[in-house]
Amino acid sequence: MAEITFWLLALFTIASAVIVVTSRQLIYSAVALLFSFIGVAGLYIYLWADFIGVVQIMIYIGGITILILFGIMLTNKITSVRISHTSVQRRIAAGGLTVLLGLLITMIIKTPWYLVAASEPTQTVESIGKMLLIDYLLPFEVVSILLLGALIGAATLARRGR
């Protein structure tokens, strides 16, 4: 049962991602992106990363997708019928990326990965919190400055009529 759910989830994620990059309607792309994020959150939960899965849902689905939808609405006239967009160089890109994907898959299958067995933790929040405030304290503080900079930068850039 878990196996079937996993494959369905993987298929769901990849099919949504295909719609994101091929749909001609920008809004459809954005909504498919939302479903792709949900699929990736499910994959995280299969990988015993419950906290990352919830963060994915909160930030990607609750934040970034909504931001992208607002971006689409602010940069298109909502009354115009086609919020569509064209693609360029599709054949060359598809050919080159198929070769790249083949190389990547060959590499993944041929490499003898170093695997360590582990037991399933009851929850991951505690260890993530400890690592963030002990081992990764400096990156944690730097990232807060980065977020502040991005906030001020985005507000300054988006302001009209300086």
Binding site: Y44, A49, F51, I52, V55, Q56, I59, Y60, G63, I64, L67, I68, F70, G71, T124, I128, M131, L132, Y136, P139, V143, L146, L147, G149, A150, L151, G153, A154, A155, L157, A158
Partner: peptide
């Protein structure tokens, strides 16, 4: 998992600045 968390934070900052631009 910590690195995944940092990537998510970077993605949020990047999306905000990119949309402003």
């Amino acid at each position: 998992q910590i690195f995944a968390l940092f990537v998510i934070i970077m993605a949020a900052a990047e999306a905000a600045v990119a949309l402003a631009i």
